[in-house]
């Protein structure tokens, strides 16, 4: 029983981070209908930036993640504004091809710059843990989990409550009508993508404090973001949270009770089962079916 509780706690903590990885991915998909295959590369790049920050300036990763966020925000803005915007009306296949290409460029660049060696971000408090009953909760994991949840909620509040957020929602629902309001859709798209990349960078930094990373791991995070986003309900930001926690739990349980190679398979099995019974995802409504193109 204690093992089960321990595994469950780890799963939930891990799930919070998966949610943060997925929430930006889901936002971009829901608003622009772009499946961003380079999302995982942004996660890893965020981890490297924070690692370098710590190595050069001794910056704590929980502060360094804001540097990662800022850098990735800028990179994300430029990529969307000057690259993806060119083909944003194209068929899904074309957007997949482009983001796949961007992903390759990022991964290979990281291989060249940072080498393919495994790294992780160490902190002085990395081995501290809280003890609740028989369960150990590492402080770093708890902190990362709480921040991930907080940032996800902050994103939802931002989208729902601010002027920029409203313009993002409106542009996602009807780009042509949004432009008729005087909203610069190209800029809004770029901001949306930038936010998504920034969140990926933050998630990557926090993941790097918990596990090792290398450029080749990017694909895993893109895949996880995809599963979580679809599971939760496309474009639904709360859905990404719920989906993230569920996948975190499933992965953790599968990792404990089945052999390691089953983990991804089980994650997809859960996805398939959920989609059979709830085609719009766990929290999804047929909301984005209302998308209209000019």
């Amino acid at each position: 029983m204690d093992t089960f509780l321990q595994v469950t706690a780890y799963g939930l903590l891990q799930g919070g981070l998966l949610a943060l990885v997925a929430v930006g991915f889901s936002l971009v998909w829901g608003i622009m209908n772009i499946v961003n295959l380079s999302h995982g590369a942004f996660v890893i790049l965020g981890a490297y930036i924070a690692w370098e920050m710590q190595s050069w300036f001794g910056l704590d990763p929980f502060l360094g993640m804001f540097v990662s966020a800022a850098v990735l925000f800028c990179i994300g803005y430029v990529i969307q504004r000057y690259l993806i915007n060119l083909i944003v009306n194209g068929p899904v296949f074309i957007t997949l091809l482009l983001t796949f290409g961007i992903n390759m460029i990022f991964i290979q660049s990281m291989n060249l710059i940072f080498t393919a060696d495994f790294r992780s971000i160490q902190t002085s408090y990395g081995s501290n843990s809280l003890k609740i009953g028989a369960i150990h909760i590492p402080v770093v994991r708890l902190l990362a989990f709480l921040l991930a949840i907080l940032i996800s909620f902050a994103l939802v509040a931002f989208v729902k409550r601010t002027r920029t957020g409203l313009s993002i929602m409106a542009t996602g629902m009807d780009r042509g009508a949004a432009r008729l309001m005087g909203i610069r859709a190209r800029h809004v798209y770029a901001i949306t993508f930038a936010i998504s990349a920034a969140l990926a960078g933050m998630a990557g930094t926090m993941i790097a404090t918990i596990e090792t990373f290398d450029p080749a791991k990017a694909g895993k995070f893109t895949l996880m973001a995809f599963v979580v986003a679809v599971l939760g309900g496309l474009g639904n930001l709360y859905g990404a949270l719920v989906g993230g926690l569920l996948i975190g739990l499933v992965e953790s349980w599968a990792g404990q009770y089945l052999s390691g190679t089953w983990v991804n398979g089980i994650a997809f099995l859960v996805l398939i089962i959920v989609l059979i019974f709830r085609p719009n995802g766990l929290v999804g409504k047929a909301f984005y079916a209302a998308r209209v193109e000019l």
Partner: peptide
């Protein structure tokens, strides 16, 4: 005001009106 009205269907009336005052 385009053909087919093109309101933002998932947003409230108030939000639609606020978006009208974007500029």
């Amino acid at each position: 005001v385009p053909e087919g009205r093109r309101l933002f269907p998932g947003l409230t009336v108030r939000e639609n009106l606020q978006l009208g005052a974007w500029r």
